[in-house]
Nucleic acid binder design. Sequence first.
DNA 1: CACCCGGAAGCCGT
DNA 2: AACGGCTTCCGGGT
Length: 309
Amino acid sequence: MFNLLYIDIGRCGMIVIDGVEPMISDMDLQRSLSVLQNYHESEWAGDDSLYSSYDPNNNGHYIYTDPLDYPIRPMHGQFMLSGTDYHYTTMTCPGSSDLDDSHESDDSSVILDQVDMEMIEFYERDVEEKYSHTEQFQQSLNSAPYQQLCKPQQSNNLPAFETLFKGNRHSNNVNRLSSNHVMSDSEDDEESSSICRKGKRGAKNVLLWKFLLEELKKGKHVEWTDISQGTFRFVDTSEISRLWGNMKRKDDMNFEKLSRGIRHYYKSGFMSRQEGTRLIYRFNWAKVPKKYRQYDPKRGMTIKHQIAY
DNA sequence: CACCCGGAAGCCGT
DNA sequence: AACGGCTTCCGGGT
């Protein structure tokens, strides 16, 4: 039997498989995906991004919340996995990549006391890469919704983030990886460990392209015209510019300036524009760090995005 | 008018 | 102190 943990830390989706050979259990997979689906339909209204947190309290059921609307408050919990007792803490981690001016920054984080974060990061890449295209994975997308959502319990007297984080990063645990595992040194961006970043108030360090990608998920002021091509259209230039200005604390932002920002991306080929059209720009998926792809040139639409879509 | 273009320079957080 | 990633301004274009 294998256990699947699906953890989403802030804006980094993570899948962690427990066991020497990472294998997805049908049950767990279907459960997690259908909960997502269910949650999405019943409460998301397509407005927010898909963020989630794993709640091991309830027999491995899952909680999904959007940290922006439903910030995960610090709480403790514990669970058993393959005979091992894990303690975990969820918390908000200020300042990572928050994207909405109406909220104080709330990247939600889940920290598992006894799990090596590097291992999680490794699994995140590895597992998604290996299994996202499999048949059972696809099938489970259509499975019946799983009804039960559990709600997190809140707790007030918990240590501060810094305290909690210290010592967790390289915890003494349990490297259950088989010996021949090699970290993929590949193309991924450095920032994958945003969870470890202490972060600052506000969100000045948001990048334009991440902001756009995030807004594209919402599809309100910008929308995909062809996600496989990376092309998208600005629906409401003034509104999107206003949001961007908010985020960067630039109150005189406008589309002129925002688009100048985009044009800087042309040089590197990160983005481009199709000629003869207005307000239609293009992401070059190949140059978008994997983690942020909503469509992968090799594999098609990203799992998370399929669900959210 | 609304958008598109890139050079030049300034700003600001790391 | 240097640098990335814009922001601001601009003259010119569709």
